[in-house]
Design a protein around this nucleic acid. Structure first.
Length: 422
DNA sequence: TCTGGGGTCCTAGGACCC
DNA sequence: TCTGGGGTCCTAGGACCC
């Protein structure tokens, strides 16, 4: 029987910010999404004040002032660096690790029991990560990933557990599941919760006791697997190697609404360039690009418009200039004057290996090799810290670029920002 | 006035073929 | 009035995750 552990950092983004701001130790702190739009992480103090996850900042302005809540713009370069430190420790402690997200990892603990108690191992993970990085984690241990997630949830919710829950015993599984609403189960979101509740399935335990065949018929194989996982039958394996990407998205809400075609073209050019850069980083070529724009769905007073265009290139490419040209055609085909656009972006898909694709006989676009050197040079300069080079279509003013009014310094990734001890 | 970004997987349904 | 059936492939859209 396999044993999984889920290690999850507590309030990760906020914890990162607090590491370098000991003065904020007991202060309520929140981290905001891109554009300083919504709350995406909350300190324990902020949670205690009733600040909800995902709430738009403008709705809690009053609370922020009244309670002196400190806000940070999200600083992904910093969080990604801290994440790497945590993950490399986990990789030292456990033989097999799946980095599941920026603040979570699954560990394979099969066989660990022979050497030490599972709970003891969980405590070791927790204290080691805490001492070496300052980041606090909780550990959930169980025979399936879905149960390990629930165990972790238990470890977070009940301080008496000491942040580690071993859920390998069947009775403990059922006891915890009876307490949890069905939408706390990994893979059950708001829509499924409503449909399940109509069938009388209200708790995680109700779902575990449901008939898998019936669930498959009424929902899907995904939910069926969830039911089996809740019963201790492992359906989801540990995925050590990151699977190759199927698509690359670059999209942003604009710092200010866009009403002018030329401005939108700049923004789309910028996202396309970034997408092309990511594509080269993944060592892939894309054959398809989707361009999309939309007004704000939150403002119902306003005229709404949302559209997307998908274009196919003759030959798969990673060349910024030809991708930007294609994106421009796409934008042209969906653009409409008279709207206040709130968001736009591009999606690259239908990927090919640069070494193994079939060139098209009728392709008359310039030889890929010519632009390859140019793209390499572009990436090199942009990664060197010497400055940034970009194509003219991206524009210079960028009034639309995102707001980040409360950004913390790059403590761990930029020499000039490394804190000084006086 | 102001509401994130980047992914995955599955399914239904249309297009197309014989 | 009567208007095949079965298969594959592709895409859009919906659901979920963090």
């Amino acid at each position: 029987m396999p044993i999984f552990a889920l290690v999850d950092c507590n309030n990760f983004y906020v914890s990162c910010e607090k590491l370098f701001r000991p003065d904020l130790k007991h202060t309520p702190v929140v981290v905001l999404s891109n554009n300083d739009g919504c709350v995406v992480a909350r300190s324990k103090e902020a949670k205690a004040l009733g600040i909800k996850m995902g709430v738009p900042v403008f709705k809690i302005r009053h609370e922020i002032e009244r309670h002196g809540i400190v806000t940070f713009s999200s600083n992904y370069a910093f969080y990604a660096d801290m994440s790497q430190r945590v993950m490399s420790i986990l990789e030292e402690l456990a033989p097999r690790v799946e980095v599941y997200s920026i603040d979570e990892a699954f560990l394979d603990l099969t066989g660990v029991e022979a050497c030490t108690s599972l709970e003891g191992f969980g405590q070791l993970v927790k204290t080691t990560v805490g001492q070496w990085t300052g980041v606090q984690v909780c550990v959930g241990i169980a025979p399936t990933k879905t149960l390990a997630k629930l165990a972790n949830h238990g470890a977070k919710s009940y301080p008496a557990t000491g942040g580690v829950v071993d859920l390998t015993a069947k009775e403990r599984q059922r006891k915890l599941m009876a307490l949890l609403p069905v939408n706390e189960v990994w893979g059950i979101g708001g829509k499924l919760k409503v449909r399940l509740e109509l069938m009388g399935i209200k708790t995680a335990l109700d779902l575990a006791d449901a008939d898998p065949a019936m669930i498959r018929k009424r929902f899907s194989v995904v939910v069926e697997k969830t039911v089996r996982e809740l019963n201790g039958i492992s359906c989801l394996n540990l995925e050590e190697a990151a699977p190759t990407k199927q698509e690359i998205v670059c999209s942003r809400s604009f710092g200010e609404r866009i009403q002018d075609f030329r401005v939108m073209r700049e923004a789309i050019s910028e996202y396309t360039s970034r997408g092309a850069e990511k594509l080269r980083g993944e060592n892939r070529l894309a054959k398809r690009i989707t361009v999309f724009i939309r007004t704000s769905p939150f403002n119902q007073q306003e005229l709404q418009y949302s559209n997307a265009a998908t274009l196919e290139m003759i030959t798969p490419t990673d060349d910024t200039t030809s991708l930007v040209k294609t994106a421009h055609r796409g934008l042209q085909s969906i653009w409409k004057d008279g709207y206040r656009f709130a968001k736009g972006g591009i999606l690259l898909s239908d990927f090919y290996d640069p070494k193994g694709y079939q060139p098209d006989l009728l392709d008359d676009s310039p030889d890929r090799a010519k632009n390859e050197k140019l793209m390499q040079t572009l990436d090199q300069i942009n990664h060197s810290g010497l400055g940034k080079v970009f194509i003219a279509a991206q524009g210079i003013q960028k009034g639309w670029s995102m707001k980040r009014d409360f950004l913390s310094p790059a403590y761990t990734t930029r020499w000039s920002d490394v804190p000084r001890v006086k």
